[in-house]
């Protein structure tokens, strides 16, 4: 928003073949300043009451999202509903372990979401590797690769724990502390370096909106 910000250098998109580079953006993400005062409070209230989950089950933990839709847990009453496309959703639930192959898709989906966007990391595997702490192909900390707002411990956490996590996320959003999008833009170089360190065949654009 502000003019003071330095415009970052264009991204190289080196992973793409030359004829595809023009199809993707080459500008790094930038930070968005929140609105001021009561406007931002109102916007944050609306964001917290309308959480749309990206319907992308990234691991075994995604199985815990399904019961939330059923009559027993009924997440709709909290304004939470699944959305099949990253363009429309605002919450990304990392369902447990993330292999390197999945991490590629996680990064792309996360970057395609429209801000403000929130990440709920589910299960022990996202925190410190969990039972996959010695796996050859599973990352141990998801917050090295994308910013995380709420962690839910357990292996697996029950759907009740997920609902509690969403309530916690709502509190964080209302307090205006869920600025993962800006954090990602601010530390973009660091996140990208971490991602490229584990994703050896980087055959996707550097930034995907």
């Amino acid at each position: 928003m502000s003019d003071k910000k330095i415009i970052p250098a264009p991204l190289a998109n080196e992973g793409l073949p030359p004829d595809e580079r023009g199809l993707f953006c080459d500008a790094a993400p930038r930070e968005y300043e929140p609105a001021r005062g009561i406007m931002e409070d109102f916007a944050n209230w609306a964001r917290s009451e309308s959480l749309w989950i990206l319907g992308f089950g990234t691991g075994c933990g995604a199985i815990e999202l399904r019961p939330l839709m059923t009559s027993r847990f009924d997440m709709y009453r909290y304004g939470i509903q699944p959305r099949p496309t990253p363009r429309q959703s605002s919450v990304f639930v990392i369902g447990g372990y993330a292999s390197v192959k999945t991490l590629k898709r996680i990064v792309r989906s996360y970057e395609q979401m429209m801000g403000p966007k929130f990440v709920v990391a589910l299960g022990s595997c996202t925190i410190n590797g969990g039972m996959y702490w010695d796996s050859y192909n599973t990352i141990k900390r998801i917050d090295q690769y994308i910013p995380v707002d709420v962690y839910i411990t357990g292996c697996m956490p029950r759907p009740e724990a997920l609902l509690a996590g969403f309530q916690e996320l709502k509190k964080i959003i209302r307090a205006g502390r869920a600025e993962g999008q800006n954090e990602y833009a601010r530390n973009f170089e660091w996140f990208k370096a971490n991602q490229k360190k584990v994703i050896k065949d980087w055959n996707m654009p550097d930034y995907n909106w």
Partner: peptide, 29 residues
């Protein structure tokens, strides 16, 4: 519909919140 399925269901004003939330998104493509 939620009552038919034995759920509590979303608030009646949920469509308003959804529209407000969509409109206050910070970036768009």
């Amino acid at each position: 519909s939620a009552k038919v399925q034995g759920r509590v269901g979303q608030p009646v004003y949920q469509p308003y919140i959804d529209i407000i939330k969509s409109s206050v998104k910070r970036n768009a493509i």
